[in-house]
Amino acid sequence: MQADTSADCRISRRNLLARGVAVAALPLVAHPAFARPRDEIDAFVLEEMGKAKIPGLALGVARRGAVQLTRGYGFADIAGRRPVTVDTMFHIASITKTVTAAVVVALADAGKFDLDEPVNPYLDFTLANPAHPDTPITFRHLLMHVSSISDQIYYQVDFRERGKDSLMPLADLLKAYLVPGGRYWSEGGNFSTAAPGSMWDYSNVGYGLLGYLVGRITGEDMRDHVRRYFFAPLGMRHSVWKIADVPDKLRATLYDMVEDVPTPVEPVGFPDWSSGMLRSSIVDLTRFLAAAANGGVADGARILSAAAAAQMLEMRTPAGLPDWLTGQGLGWMASELGGVPRINHWGGDPGLFTAAYLDPATRTGVAIFSNMSASAESRTAIKAIADRMLKL
């Protein structure tokens, strides 16, 4: 997730470096001319898509533990004129972190560990900030991006696999990055100088470590654990962790704007899958948001206790929190939307931009997926759509 200097939100896990060669002009599809609005919601969404030149978009709204609305707009693939449907599977990027966080909090709630407990006893290597070797890193530190694990070297090394999943096991990445002498170890580059727990510093590697910890604690790969205890109860049938597992007919083609032309870009795979590799349909993720906004239960399926779900959404303001955020929770963040602090998480990678919002007061969740690289215009559009849906 790459820092966004526009003071909006961090929405991209890497610099959006993938740039294709401009192809013959293809029609933009986010315009009423390509879809007849069914109601005011359609008209509003299509207008915002047109302003931002977004090819395809999926929208979901949940309220009081149930999916209320899911819709697709524009094209999942422009050349094939394949429309976005409610089953189209988008790469949700860093929204993945909210799922990883929920799994960790659920395990703590079940008594497997305490969130304020050091993670070292659960690892097969020693984790320590060399500047503060006697200050332990806890589960809560990792969840709240105050672990002191830095992404500085992570951004400098190109871990991307273009067009396919990463072949590097998560364990190999972590040990090479976090253990002195490892391939990606750099004195002063893998940890900040701040003590664990003292300073906010967004960390993809930290969320990669959380995924690894879940596997160590449960005895099964976190992806299998999530399928069993989250996806199956919620009926999430179109959510996968690998590029290869997305059926071609459900895949959202990714686009970058090159010389004002939407140009396809390849998906990219990363080894830190628990940080941002989840693919999901709008129906599926809206079911997850329905539970997250409704005390951990959706349509009778409970994935979190009410206390655990509430704890995830408690916002704190650690030192170093950037001014575009108003709070940091367990996985979730908060920032202003329409002049009101709103719990949310955004995601971005080359060719995509996604957002999820929660309003626990009204038990509402909103998910928005798009298949175009983030831009100032798309940020404005996504925020306008989210604000409108939360106020319905």
Rank of each mutant, 00 (worst) to 15 (best):
P341Y: 03
T98H: 04
I54G: 07
D245A: 15
K53N: 11
M389A: 15
N344M: 06
E336M: 06
F139A: 04
D42H: 05
G269T: 05
G339P: 00
A374M: 08
K242F: 12
S6C: 02
R227I: 13
R363W: 00
E377F: 04
R36Y: 02
V265W: 09
F231I: 09
V157D: 07
G182H: 10
H238R: 15
M236V: 13
G338Q: 01
G276S: 12
L17R: 14
T88G: 04
A52G: 11
A62K: 00
F230G: 15
E48A: 14
E161A: 15
A171D: 15
D134C: 02
F231Q: 13
R287A: 13
L26D: 01
Y184C: 01
N344A: 05
P264M: 09
A33S: 15
V29N: 14
Y255T: 12
H31G: 11
M1E: 14
D134V: 11
A194F: 13
F369P: 00
E40F: 12
V104Q: 03
D77P: 06
P271R: 02
D4N: 15
V297W: 02
R64K: 10
A292E: 14
A176Q: 11
S239D: 10
P247Y: 11
P136G: 13
P32C: 10
G320H: 03
P247D: 08
K383E: 09
A292Q: 14
R237E: 15
V61W: 01
A298T: 06
L390P: 11
H91V: 03
N190Y: 01
F34N: 12
G208H: 07
A384L: 05
L69K: 02
N120C: 06
N371F: 01
G74T: 09
E266T: 01
